[in-house]
Amino acid sequence: MVVEQIVPEEIVYQRPRSLVECATHYCPGCTHGVAHRIIAEVIDEMGLREHTIGVASVGCSVFAYNYFDFDWVQAPHGRAPAMATGVKRVLPDRMVITYQGDGDMASIGMTEVVHAAARGENITVFFINNANYGMTGGQMAPTTLPGQKTTSSPHGRDVELAGYPIRASELLATLEGAAYVVRRSLHDPKNIRLAKKAVRTALEVQRQGLGFSMVEMLSICPTNWGMSPNQALQWLAEKMIPYYPVGDYRVSPSVAQLKV
């Protein structure tokens, strides 16, 4: 016979060790927090907390270093991949990650990230795409969708004047040095789980020295989009994903063999 023994209860989820015990400055519902959390979870699960050096960027995530309980340096706007290169070349056995928003990485820092990827720099970039400049109050970013209203495209992004949004993952995926470039979304539990798996793969790519890795995460900015957080999730799913499809854009042959 089968005996069922009911143990009163067990913790099935708790705050990861790699997050500092303090409240963030992010607005309510901002999925920067989700990205932080899954990165911290993976770093805990892989036992990397004491071997990781983060490179913070400029934008809403400027204070990322306040929230992760490991070593951080703070880069000038857009330069995180260059700074990460400097750290990694001196300390090749440490894990070096950058955490950058779309203004930081896809606008002012496009040169640095393209060349870090082209060199096959063995770093991991976490790229948060929320289709606007959050910290400065919701201006047009290189990722702002055609027609999307922002404080610097008050009538909606006019592609005749401001051009089209940049699909950073697709762009970086053309580079030989890039080993793992994927886009994920943080708008529902299933996609968050897939994003976490990608974070894990990216860090495994770095741990094994396979080259440049990047996980783009579609993210919401309820405050600047002028929506409730739950409305913003829906907007992301309906408006952003058609322009920025979730998917694997570059998985080098060596990465394809990884068991994560």
């Binding site: 340096v73 260059a82 700074m83 290169t85 400097g86 750290v87 040169t111």
Partner: peptide
């Protein structure tokens, strides 16, 4: 060999932080 002087000085910045 960096992509620019901007890249080079920020690589220096990163390495200096170690």
């Amino acid at each position: 060999q960096a992509e620019s002087e901007l890249g080079a000085i920020n690589m220096v910045y990163g390495a200096a932080c170690t």
